[in-house]
């Protein structure tokens, strides 16, 4: 951790203890605490805070300086140019942003990037090796399990987890445990077929 970072940590604690406007008035103009306003909405809120994070994305270490407000989804798409994960609703309602965090399917739009430090993140780009599609990807192609394709990366990440969690036992169970992924093209019957096919291949 750099001196800057330490200073930021100490500073933020001190600010909090002093609290409110007095603390905010003491904000330094250093590299860590920039002077951008808090949207003009709050007289007592902090200014934009940038922090250093080290993320493990698809097996690669990525060191970044990010705004504390950054979601994992925005960091993946904007900072790391991993645009497979999609932004649909940005409120955890559609599942298009689904990635795996420590093997668990997770909504990257409701995960602060700062929280992902210390975890292993796998996105659709990291699901298979370069030469071969993952069985779930192949099953989606073979079963025509999409039309426009926008929800597909999230569906595939969710489908893989559905099987590894042991929740792909029947059509009804697949539908229930895939309900966090919406498809506006309504390719649902084919998605269920794809998950079933991949289940056999994955040995789930």
């Amino acid at each position: 951790m750099s001196d800057d970072h330490d200073r930021f940590d100490n500073f933020s604690r001190r600010t909090l203890m002093k609290g409110g406007a007095a603390g905010a008035a003491m904000l330094p103009m250093g590299a860590r605490a920039q002077s951008m306003s808090a949207g003009g909405a709050s007289a007592t809120g902090p200014s934009v805070q940038r922090i250093e994070v080290s993320l493990d994305i698809n097996g690669q270490r990525r060191d970044l300086t990010i705004d504390t407000r950054s979601t994992l989804l925005d960091v993946l798409r904007h900072e790391l140019e991993l645009t497979g994960s999609k932004k649909g609703c940005d409120h955890g309602q559609c599942g298009a942003c689904t990635v795996h965090v420590d093997g668990q399917r997770t909504l990257s739009c409701l995960t602060l990037a700062a929280q992902a430090e210390g975890t292993k993140v796998v996105t659709i780009e990291g699901l298979s090796d370069e030469d071969n599609l993952h069985p779930m990807q192949r099953a989606f192609v073979e079963n025509d399990a999409f039309q426009c394709g926008y929800c597909t990366p999230g569906q595939i990440m969710s489908g893989v987890a559905c099987i590894t969690e042991g929740h792909a036992g029947s059509d009804a169970e697949i539908r229930e445990y895939m309900s966090g992924n919406l498809c506006r093209c309504a390719a649902y019957p084919n998605i269920v077929a794809a998950v079933k096919q991949a289940r056999t291949e994955m040995g789930g």
Binding site: M36, G39, V48, Q49, T68, R69, L112
Partner: peptide
């Protein structure tokens, strides 16, 4: 979203 401090 408004800025905030983040701490673990």
């Amino acid at each position: 979203m408004r800025p905030f401090y983040y701490e673990r």
